[in-house]
Design a protein around this nucleic acid. Structure first.
Lengths: 229, 229
DNA sequence: TGTACATCAGTGAACGCGCGTTCACTGATGTAC
DNA sequence: TGTACATCAGTGAACGCGCGTTCACTGATGTAC
């Protein structure tokens, strides 16, 4: 697709890298991200430990790559549903919510690589931040479409200016992809994000099933209340 | 307070256990829960590694104890604010929200011990589950007070029965402390819990500050929309 | 098409390290008479 | 109040382990003429 022709060797390298990451994901799913071991992965692939250093500089690079892949895959799912391209921005918020949950359930540990317990001192490289902005752009697109257009500088009579909207108006660098979106759209995006992360992460951590509740219903209920507040 | 008289030895044991846990918390705050090492803690206390086995059966027991303490401390904060006892159930939801956030910010890693990335295969012992039920009881008390009393079996005319309320009516073991609370109260409790977990965990993981937003305002905005939906 | 050379995947030995945990022991603290 | 004994905190040596990572090397694959 990208047109770059691959030599057989490059193709092979990529295959092995992919297999390493696949085993890494399995290992994380089995015993948590902190238990990730290069030697164990190599053994599982029938290789010696040092062989992996042909493919990854070290353990940290592998983990960062897994995080990058996780972001990339979620961003792609969002873009496919409602991003730029054919039918640009046509997906509603409810659709994005469905996509998010399906993506998260597909591999919960991938979700926690992005939104889980932060590792003290870890800072994602810049290209990962860029991917998360792609993600946000799709969300903002859907939010802008779901909200009445910007009311202009004159406040609607009888409506007090919301202090939170004021804060948003002053801090909208994170929404640089949509410079014309009204504060209400930014606000909707944040609401979508934080509320769905709330239900979803509790679900994935098993807090609801421990209570005998059906996570799908909880999720849907929350989605309803975002779309029609 | 509990009246059990302590011999000096018991008192000393407890002091040392406490110091071990304190160092453990520092270590977790510094490099994450997975980096917790008994030997490192011992060294930090000027003791040899094996000495700690006088106080904890093994590493797992120490971690479980840290989790238990985290739950206990949050439950105590909730009870102090709005639990049974003097002024039973007087605290509003907004007050509980304030307590929750203050508690979480006091030591973010304690929060993640409870609500962070789940460790595959780990199951909390039953007494910890019991503490989380204490917590829920305080929340339910506040929710029951914030909601109109149970409407009885006859549905209000013009109001369609909500399928989610139906699900809640069928699965309310987790709310056993309040058998008479209407479904709307249970629903409010779940909303409080999941939404505040959403904003709070994003804040603690640094996702907002990375965007230039003020987490306190985001939190307050969400609290407002829970209390007055 | 065949030969000479360069590239690169993978190996096995070795490094130092810190981990959790056991064990037999010493010495201090508390208890019973 | 003094002595004999039991309890228990803490030590140091030792266990086996798996980790990440380096290094010099072998052998297969691809490239240039």
């Amino acid at each position: 697709m990208t047109g770059t022709t691959k030599t057989p060797r490059e193709r092979y390298r990529q295959q092995v890298r992919e297999e390493v990451k696949e085993k890494a994901r399995q290992q994380i799913a089995g015993s948590g991200a902190s238990a990730l071991s290069l030697n164990a992965i190599a053994k599982q692939m029938g290789m010696s430990g040092p062989a992996l250093y042909r493919y990854f500089a070290n353990r940290d690079e592998l983990i960062t790559e897994l995080i990058r892949d996780a972001y990339r895959s979620l961003a792609d799912a969002f873009i496919a549903a409602g991003g730029p391209g054919e039918g640009a921005g046509r997906a509603g918020l409810a659709e994005l919510a469905r996509v998010l949950r399906r993506w998260a359930l597909e591999d919960p540990h991938r979700y926690f690589l992005i939104y889980g317990t932060p590792v003290p001192g870890y800072h994602a490289p810049q290209d990962i931040t860029a991917i998360s902005q792609e993600l946000m752009a799709v969300l903002l697109e859907a939010c802008a479409a779901a909200v009445p257009p910007a009311p202009g500088p004159i406040p609607t009579p009888g409506t007090e200016p919301d202090p939170f909207d004021g804060h948003l108006a002053d801090h909208r660098e994170w929404a640089a992809s949509h410079p014309d979106a009204p504060p209400s759209a930014l606000r909707l995006a944040l609401t979508f994000w934080s509320r769905l992360h709330g239900v979803l992460s509790l679900e994935l951590a098993g807090h609801f099933t421990g209570m005998g509740l059906d996570p799908a219903l909880l999720f849907d209920a929350e989605v309803d209340r975002i779309a029609t507040p």
